[in-house]
């Protein structure tokens, strides 16, 4: 130890060289220096460990992309780019195309956002601005609890409650009044794209609303008072003073929700109908990228079949990245000029 201290701090050596003459010198200084060098060593170890943690993430992403691209090579050679733009999915004749899955994933997720965003923001506004104090905590807690329910349970609930409800009441009503749009027509199976969108919406409401609630709570009281003092009504105060200040954070929550919706597998697989088709009507069954992988992976017999499924996985990965980048660009354009801090 002493050696290392001297080595690390050459300035101390002349003192030590004086030797016996200064033997009475208090040992405080060398000891302090030794300690200093150990802490330097610890610092370096710490730095290295943290670097390793950071690199692990990069490595993981690399391994996933590597696996997806190599295992999908067979499908890419067989179909090329057409794989992503044709909707045949025919294991018997070994013809594969991912378009209907890409379509199913995007449409079900967008439908989910369409339903979930207004609902989630409404929940957040009610909790932060309108609810009586005693109801606030239980309500916030329950919303968060919704996020903790495993997706298979959502799937079961959807099969036993949501699907019959859609089949018997909602779909006939929609078909009667909005059937002319062509988006809601055909036989009301219950199961299908609409059911998938609704169950996804229910699953992402807690994510969006709890983030929206947090950023809205962080808006300083002075902002609310500033709007009120200008003669604003309560709604105007919420729009200008609260939502206006919290919009960057709310967009962040929406993107997180979208990410969850794109990748959600179990609940969607249970209610979407699992038929590789592109139909205009939301009543028709569909299929998503995540569902087809989960459903068919274990029984994919041929090598081309398996490779095509991996390629679908790659497509899901890419769609998720593209959507996130687009959403990020949207956030930047919407919140340009907004300071990073919400408290000013």
């Amino acid at each position: 130890m002493a050696n290392r201290a001297v080595g690390a701090h050459p300035l101390t050596s002349p003192e030590l060289a004086v030797g016996p003459a200064l033997a009475a010198q208090p040992p405080a200084k060398p000891e302090f220096l030794i300690k200093d060098s150990t802490s330097q060593w610890a610092d370096r170890t710490f730095q290295f460990a943290m670097l390793a943690c950071g690199l692990t993430v990069l490595l993981l992403v690399y391994l996933i992309i590597y696996e997806l691209t190599t295992k999908g090579t067979l499908a890419r050679h067989a179909f090329g780019w057409r794989f992503f733009f044709q909707s045949d999915w025919d294991p018997v004749n070994d013809r594969y195309g991912a378009l209907s899955f890409v379509y199913g994933t995007i449409v079900s997720s967008l439908l989910a956002l369409l339903i979930a965003v207004p609902l989630a923001i409404g929940v957040a506004v009610f909790i932060t601005e309108m609810s009586p104090r005693w109801l606030r905590t239980p309500l916030a807690f329950t919303t968060e609890l919704l996020a903790a329910i495993p997706s298979v349970i959502y799937g079961l609930w959807a099969i036993f409650v949501l699907v019959p409800l859609l089949r018997q009441s909602v779909q006939p009503w929609l078909a009667r009044y909005l059937g002319w749009t062509g988006l809601v027509e055909g036989p009301p199976y219950g199961i299908g794209m609409l059911a998938a969108g609704v169950i996804l919406a229910i699953m992402i409401v807690p994510i969006i609303s709890s983030i929206a609630r947090e950023v809205m709570t962080a808006v300083p009281q002075q902002q609310r008072e500033a709007v009120l003092a200008l003669g604003a009504t309560r709604w105007e105060m919420i729009r200008m003073g609260v939502l206006g200040n919290a919009r960057a954070g709310i967009w962040g929550g929406i993107i997180l929700g979208l990410g969850r919706a794109l990748g959600e597998t179990m609940a969607v697989t249970m209610v979407i109908g699992n038929r590789p088709e592109i139909a205009k009507s939301l009543f028709a069954p569909g299929y998503t990228m995540a569902s087809v992988i989960a459903n068919e992976f274990s029984e994919a017999s041929g090598e081309l079949y398996l490779s095509s499924l991996v390629e679908v996985g790659l497509a899901l990965f890419l769609v998720t990245i593209v959507v996130n980048v687009l959403a990020q660009l949207l956030v930047w354009s919407v919140t340009r000029g907004t300071p990073a801090r919400s408290h000013v």
Binding site: E225, A226, A229, N245, V344
Partner: peptide
């Protein structure tokens, strides 16, 4: 009635 508060509170997003 106009009101000016203790801490300046302009709307930061505007």
């Amino acid at each position: 009635i106009g009101m000016v508060f203790q801490k300046p509170n302009p709307f930061p997003t505007m």
